[in-house]
Amino acid sequence: MQIFVKTLTGKTITLEVEPSDTIENVKAKIQDKEGIPPDQQRSIFAGKQLEDGRTLSDYNIQKESTLHLVLR
């Protein structure tokens, strides 16, 4: 499925993911596309910070959902 990741600069990245993917996985995909190390990424969805060990389905993130990426 496709999800979108919006950065603070307003750029939107499209990722191909599975509901079973962990947040860690997703951060690795963002690193592949953007070169941002996962330890600098904070992902926010529906106002909640997403934890690395959880999966997209844990957070009820579905296709075409938009995550927000904040850098630390």
Score class of each variant (00 low, 15 high):
1 M>G: 01
1 M>W: 07
2 Q>A: 07
2 Q>R: 14
2 Q>D: 04
3 I>T: 00
4 F>K: 06
4 F>W: 06
4 F>V: 04
4 F>Y: 14
4 F>Q: 04
5 V>Y: 03
5 V>H: 00
5 V>C: 04
6 K>G: 03
7 T>P: 02
7 T>K: 02
7 T>E: 05
7 T>S: 06
7 T>Q: 04
7 T>H: 04
8 L>F: 13
8 L>Q: 12
8 L>E: 13
9 T>R: 11
9 T>S: 13
9 T>F: 12
9 T>N: 12
9 T>H: 12
11 K>C: 09
12 T>F: 11
12 T>R: 07
12 T>V: 14
13 I>K: 00
13 I>T: 00
13 I>A: 02
13 I>H: 04
13 I>Y: 08
13 I>S: 00
13 I>V: 07
14 T>A: 09
14 T>H: 05
14 T>Y: 06
15 L>K: 01
15 L>N: 02
15 L>E: 00
16 E>K: 08
16 E>R: 09
16 E>V: 12
16 E>F: 13
16 E>P: 03
17 V>F: 03
18 E>G: 07
18 E>W: 12
18 E>D: 13
18 E>V: 13
19 P>G: 08
20 S>E: 10
20 S>F: 09
21 D>G: 03
21 D>L: 04
21 D>H: 04
22 T>V: 03
22 T>F: 05
23 I>H: 01
23 I>C: 02
24 E>A: 14
24 E>T: 06
24 E>Y: 14
24 E>I: 09
24 E>Q: 12
25 N>V: 14
25 N>A: 13
26 V>S: 00
27 K>W: 11
27 K>T: 06
27 K>A: 07
28 A>N: 11
28 A>I: 13
28 A>C: 06
28 A>M: 14
29 K>D: 03
30 I>L: 08
30 I>D: 01
30 I>P: 01
31 Q>G: 08
31 Q>S: 12
31 Q>M: 13
31 Q>R: 12
32 D>H: 11
33 K>G: 06
33 K>M: 13
34 E>F: 14
34 E>R: 05
34 E>W: 15
34 E>D: 14
34 E>I: 15
34 E>M: 15
34 E>Y: 13
35 G>Y: 04
35 G>S: 05
35 G>W: 05
36 I>A: 08
36 I>F: 11
36 I>E: 09
37 P>L: 09
37 P>C: 08
37 P>Y: 09
37 P>Q: 08
37 P>S: 11
38 P>M: 15
38 P>F: 15
38 P>R: 13
39 D>Q: 10
39 D>S: 13
39 D>R: 08
40 Q>G: 11
40 Q>V: 12
40 Q>D: 10
41 Q>W: 15
41 Q>T: 13
41 Q>H: 09
41 Q>Y: 15
42 R>E: 14
42 R>V: 15
42 R>L: 15
42 R>T: 15
42 R>K: 13
43 S>M: 15
43 S>D: 08
43 S>V: 15
43 S>W: 15
43 S>F: 15
44 I>M: 12
45 F>K: 01
45 F>L: 05
45 F>D: 04
45 F>N: 04
45 F>V: 05
45 F>Y: 13
45 F>H: 07
46 A>V: 06
46 A>I: 06
46 A>D: 12
47 G>I: 05
47 G>M: 05
48 K>M: 13
48 K>A: 09
48 K>G: 07
48 K>W: 08
48 K>L: 12
48 K>P: 04
49 Q>A: 12
49 Q>L: 15
50 L>N: 01
50 L>F: 04
50 L>C: 03
51 E>V: 07
51 E>L: 11
52 D>C: 07
52 D>T: 05
52 D>W: 04
52 D>F: 02
53 G>W: 14
53 G>E: 09
53 G>V: 07
54 R>N: 09
54 R>S: 06
55 T>A: 06
55 T>R: 08
55 T>E: 01
55 T>V: 05
55 T>K: 10
56 L>F: 03
56 L>P: 01
56 L>Y: 02
57 S>D: 08
58 D>K: 00
58 D>P: 00
58 D>Q: 07
59 Y>F: 04
59 Y>V: 03
59 Y>P: 02
60 N>F: 06
60 N>W: 05
61 I>H: 02
61 I>C: 02
61 I>T: 01
61 I>L: 03
62 Q>K: 11
62 Q>M: 10
62 Q>S: 10
64 E>R: 07
64 E>I: 03
64 E>D: 14
65 S>C: 05
65 S>I: 04
65 S>F: 06
66 T>K: 03
66 T>C: 05
66 T>A: 03
66 T>G: 01
66 T>F: 07
67 L>R: 00
67 L>H: 00
68 H>N: 06
68 H>L: 15
68 H>E: 11
68 H>S: 06
68 H>P: 00
69 L>G: 00
69 L>R: 00
70 V>W: 08
70 V>P: 03
70 V>M: 09
70 V>Y: 12
70 V>L: 11
70 V>Q: 08
71 L>P: 09
71 L>W: 11
71 L>A: 09
71 L>S: 09
71 L>D: 07
72 R>T: 12
72 R>S: 12
72 R>M: 14
72 R>E: 11
